[in-house]
Structures are given as structure tokens and as C-alpha cells.
Design a protein around this nucleic acid. Sequence first.
DNA 1: AAATCAAGTTCCATATATTGGAATAAATAA
DNA 2: TTATTTATTCCAATATATGGAACTTGATTT
Lengths: 271, 271
Amino acid sequence: MMVMEKGIDSAFEAVPVVETGTLGKAIAVLELVSTAQTPLRFTEILALSGQPRGTLHRQLSHLVGEGLLSLGSDLRYEPGMRLLKLASNAWAKNQFRTVAEPHLKRLHDRTGETVHLGVLHGREIIYLDKVESRQAVRMNSQIGNASPVYCTGVGKAALSVLPEDRLADLVGQLSFQAYTPNTHLSAAALMDELLAVRLAGYAFDREEHESGIRCVAAPIYAQRHGVVAGVSVTGPAYRVSMEQLELWAASVCDAARAIEQEVDVRLGPGR
Amino acid sequence: MMVMEKGIDSAFEAVPVVETGTLGKAIAVLELVSTAQTPLRFTEILALSGQPRGTLHRQLSHLVGEGLLSLGSDLRYEPGMRLLKLASNAWAKNQFRTVAEPHLKRLHDRTGETVHLGVLHGREIIYLDKVESRQAVRMNSQIGNASPVYCTGVGKAALSVLPEDRLADLVGQLSFQAYTPNTHLSAAALMDELLAVRLAGYAFDREEHESGIRCVAAPIYAQRHGVVAGVSVTGPAYRVSMEQLELWAASVCDAARAIEQEVDVRLGPGR
DNA sequence: AAATCAAGTTCCATATATTGGAATAAATAA
DNA sequence: TTATTTATTCCAATATATGGAACTTGATTT
């Protein structure tokens, strides 16, 4: 039943490959409610989840009892505060993030643009940290945010260092969506670009995820820690030319390599 | 078995009052790992959790399978990326936060100091949002962070609007810790101050949680939504005098009342 | 190398919690 | 009021979790 070697699974699989029992079903309900655009009523969840009434009712009451969901007086379920608390802990103590932090700052000092740190989780990139020029818009909006691998700089950088078989697996499971006119829409197109990324050692996002936003990213492969990740420098197209990004590529790669090394030193042999 | 009226439970109880079955036990393990200062090995968790070996092993494997924990190649368990993703969704879509946001910004514009929005969850305050002057230090550190009710401005403000019986319950369960020389250390002392807070309509934090940090806070009681919360303006003692805070109190109260009203309008009758 | 020890994993009969259909109750509308 | 939708509770059947013990694995010592 355990099909993967232990340890390095986290970066590759989000959807359970192992049995997760009743917990898995409960978390599926949690995800459903937490992904919904607006608080849901019992019947709506019933329809979406496909669970039997009695079962769903108990699952929800358990989730509410744990503070993972909250039930308003209007009988609508929405994500609970405990999720924030758990995640806050997770984020604050994350060793990979802690190690990377100063390097992100330095990269930001050099470029003056927004720096992202994202890790590969299943078929998505989850942003772990961000250093922003000024607090222009919402500052936290990005952290914990999940974005597609195939149209973000960090995503393509991360993919470029995956072992061949893992990559094939993952790309096979992707479904492509045209966020902008520049978004890659086929596995073939993506694989083609990954070839170029592997040669250069860094990846661009040429307004593929969001019009008017481009970035340059470099991969971080912390094998021992089972982390496949990436750093990027992002900016608005009107201010940051592709030539500029090209010039920054070296710095981004430096930062990535520095993080990689420090992670290996700090979390590697010692642990 | 259900002892509380439905709907308004979320703000008052964090620890399960209802049975939460196997989910509860799994989440307890998750919390344990996620609260630890450093990634834990199986045996350490075994000792801390008090569960039998076989049981714990399965719980952990389910949590890992769901991406809530991750297991490194060094056989240490640490919080998984999925927590961040779930929380990010929860935060981004939180209606209370969304409604409050512009009011927080306005309050920040008026005062120039850091503005916090925190909600009462069980015996703690969980920070839901923050508007900061400049990105001095870590900007995200505060969101999702849990702080004691008895020594934060937001905490005392929130307590001041709780119904008598709920308040008694909650205060009875507190255990006090001296974060600074100014921290209240007894239920009596806290209740005394709450009396004053109720009269004034706002609360101070006189360097009770962190030396050199003071704030003024006002309560938000969104009954319909089952939310007890608070807004605050926080600053370093060297720059912000108590007199200054006193002057800001009116603005803070205005913001709180505005949020209260808008929540009632937007989430109240319509839903 | 072999032996020892510690840490992690699997096994399986038993106990228990989950399951899910159906009945009930509560809220809302006609 | 009655009708109707929606939420909650009930309970026998069943699947899942439980937990002690056996087993593996890997490191350390003799």
C-alpha cells in the first residue's frame, strides 16, 4: 500500500497515495468548505461532498468541535480560526523558510523588486515567504497561496530539477488553464520550455500567470530535506524589462544556490 | 451531548466541548507536532502524546498522507504545506476580515501606527489582520498568531463585551503568566480592569504583554456572526505616550463601531 | 564481523467509532 | 394554520481504529 519510499514524499504528492482513513474524509470536507467562495449551508455541502446525511453531519460537528470550521448563527459553515493558528505556527517554525529568509532579503536589496520563496507541493507551488518593496497592496495575500506549476517562474524552476520519472508523473496529471495569452497549454510546450530552463539554470515567467507581471526564478533542490522549491524576483512589466530580468538571473541563482547549501549544512548531516 | 446553543460557540470555546471522535485525536497529534519548537521524531511524539505505538504510527501516517504533516528523510515530523494552503484560503475569504479591512486602513492613516484586528477564540486572541507603518521587521509574523486575552489590548477589549456568565467561565479557566512586570496576574485584577474598560469603552495595554509596547483597543461585538473581536493601535512606548493613546481612543472606537455596523448590515439580515 | 541495542514499522484479534438510511424536529414559506 | 424545506437525531450493521506484541531496520559497540 505504501508505494513510495519514505521521507521524500512530501514535495511530490498532495493527493493521498496512502490510506488516510476517516481523517482523510473529514479533511476533504474541511477543504471543500474552506475552498468555497462563501460560507456554505449544510445542504450545499451535502450536495458537493456526496456523503450521506448522517455521516456528513457528524463530520461537520467534529470539525466545528475542533475549531477547524465554525458554524454561524445563520447555519453556514466557514473556516475556523484554529486553521490560522496552526498555520501560523507551521510558518513561523518552518526551518527551510528560516534558513532562506536572509537570502531573500539580500536578493531584494539587490533588485528592489518583490522576492518570492515557493515550494513544490503536489501539482502546485505554495508560497512560503515574500519580501516586498513597499506594502503597496495586501502584504500577506501571497503566503500560503497555491499557484499552478506550469505558469509561474518558481513552478517551472522547481520542475526543471525534478527527476525524469517524477516529472513525467506530475506533468501527466496537469490540466492546463489559459490564465493569459502566454500561458503554456500543453505538456509538450511545458516540457520544451523546461529543457531551456534546465540549460540556463533559471526560468522566466513571461506574463504567463498574470498579464503585466513577469519574473525570473531559480530552482532550489534540498534533497535531504525532501524539498523542491524556487526563489524568484517579480515585477510589473512596465517597470521591469526582460533584459533586466536576464541581468538579475545570476543574483537569483546565487541566492538559490546559497539557500540550497545552507539548508544542507544546517539541516543535513547534523540532524 | 451538545451542551451549547448553536451558532455562537466559535468565539467562546477552543477546546472541544463536543465529542470530536477520531478526528479530535488526530488533530491533537497535529497540534502537538505543529507546536513543537523543532521537528520531532516518532519516539518523542510517542512520549508527548501518550498514545500507544501502533495507534500513533497510524495517526501520523494519515496526517502525512493528507499533507498536514511532512516526514523528512531524517524521520522527523514537521508541519506540512497543506496547512498553509488551507489557512491562506480561510484568511483570504474571511468575510469579517474583508469587511474590516478598509476601516483598519483608515485607522492606520489617521494614527500612523500599527493597527491590529484580533478575534476571540477560546481563551486566546487570534490576530486576523494587521496594517503596518513600514515593513520594519517580519510583517506576517502576527497574522494567525495567538496571544493571551488578559494582557493584550484587543483581548481585554473583547472580554469587556462578553456576557457575564461567559466571561466568568473564561476567566476561571485562565492561567496567568508574567510576560512583563505590568501583566495582570490574577482573575481579580483582570476583572477590576475590565470594569474600567467597560466604562470607558476602550482598553489599554500598558506594556503588559511586551515591554516597550503599548496600545489602545476597542471591542467589536458582531453578535449575529458569533464574533467577539477587537481593533487596536499599537506603538513603541518611546514614541507613543499614554496621552497620545488616550487621544486616539475615539478613532479606535469609531473604527470598531463602523466595523460592527457594517458586519451587521452585510452579514446580518441578508444571510 | 558479529552482537547488542535502540528506533521504527507491521500485525491482528478485539473494541469502538463510523456509517447511512430513515425518523424526527426545527425553521421557513404559503 | 398547513405545507415545505432544511437540519438534526437515532440506531443496527459494519468498517475502522485500537493497542499490545512481534518483527525489521539501522546504528553502535564488542
